[in-house]
Design a protein around this nucleic acid. Structure first.
Lengths: 207, 207
DNA sequence: CCTACCGATCGGTAGG
DNA sequence: CCTACCGATCGGTAGG
């Protein structure tokens, strides 16, 4: 009667019953990312999500207060992971050209890699997110864009790019992000080859 | 009793009552394009469309057998218009660089220009179209892609592009099409400037 | 093209 | 997290 917590099989990783709930929440986000990517936000129902994690249709709302909140969580997790990856790249002591190649390659992985569903959801269904929820995501996106912008400035200073304008960055990132619309894994082009071709296309004096 | 057609105000442009229906159909497509662009396909209801043209909610189905058919009509009309524009460009006697610039500029107009809602709908909601309806559109899209591919080959032959690979084309078209996600009219960048910046970014030996 | 309507689906909730 | 459910919406149709 004293402690209703900590029944059922205890999780191995952390003490306290709340880690169960945290695991379930994380599972919901992961599964939702996959479904949203495959069918789109509007094409995925709460029932689809609940089925995929073995819940009843009302239960996701124990973890999230709305379907939109799941979408926001998917996008936020995707951006957080991407931020970690890109910040690790620019923290290294790479020359501008190699830094840029690493960014391109990382972004291609994020957008096209096996099991990477989070950022494609952001690219496909950004509009489906309400303005209030968009704001939180935009703050993360701004940090992300800044990393690219700085690298682009370094490339310009090194004479490998004509300009470091915002438009130049948007054209480059657009070309990369748009691959989500046409790239098919196993279609004869690897992500490494894609990165090289993009590098050669954007940069002066590249092989 | 003999002829139930040709009542109501007769249209000025063409004889025969069926041109009324054709006009209404065209109006439905045009209005749907605008709404689909603004709110997305799933975010637009048949009732929204009917309201916008002054019909009752069941009446659009007199002109189209399903909501998806309206979407297909929007995309098809957009591609047909784009095909006319691009075919006119490549039919002219322009040098490769000027031909490419004209294609870029035309595509930017198609994607970002005032009142150009058709192709953005295709870019945003391609996935919403069922496979059967996609097929008809793909045939048009193939002709479109071919024009770009040929121009890219000419640029490569003129030494202004490293490669005329399909990936090169997709990266270029991706950069241009992705502008639909970020470009804001009146934001200080004109479409002409955008075309110039894209040209300089992709081509060797450009100003 | 309107009237009148249906069947299904869907996000979300109360109460435990 | 389940049970049981609701209110609203939505694409689509019959019949004129």
């Amino acid at each position: 009667m004293s402690a209703p917590e900590q029944v059922k099989p205890a999780p191995a990783d952390a003490p306290g019953g709340e880690s169960d709930a945290r695991n379930r929440r994380a599972e919901l986000v992961r599964v939702s990312a996959r479904l949203f990517r495959e069918r789109g936000f509007d094409g995925t129902t709460i029932r689809d999500i609940a089925d995929a994690v073995g819940m009843r249709s009302g239960s996701p709302f124990y973890h999230f207060k709305s379907k939109q909140d799941i979408l926001a969580a998917v996008m936020e997790e995707g951006l957080n992971a991407s931020l970690v990856a890109t910040e690790a790249i620019v923290a290294g002591a790479l020359a501008p050209r190699e830094k840029f190649r690493a960014l391109l390659r990382a972004q291609l992985e994020t957008v096209l890699g096996e099991g990477h569903d989070f950022i494609p959801v952001l690219l496909y269904d950004w509009r489906a997110l309400g303005p209030a929820l968009q704001e939180r995501i935009i703050a993360l996106k701004d940090r992300y864009d800044q990393i690219w912008q700085q690298t682009i400035t370094e490339l310009r200073d090194a004479g490998m790019l004509r300009t470091d304008s915002k438009v130049a960055r948007l054209l480059i990132m657009g070309a990369v992000n748009y691959t989500v619309q046409w790239y098919k894994p196993g279609g004869g082009v690897t992500l490494d080859e894609l990165a090289d071709e993009a590098l050669a296309m954007f940069l002066h004096g590249s092989a």
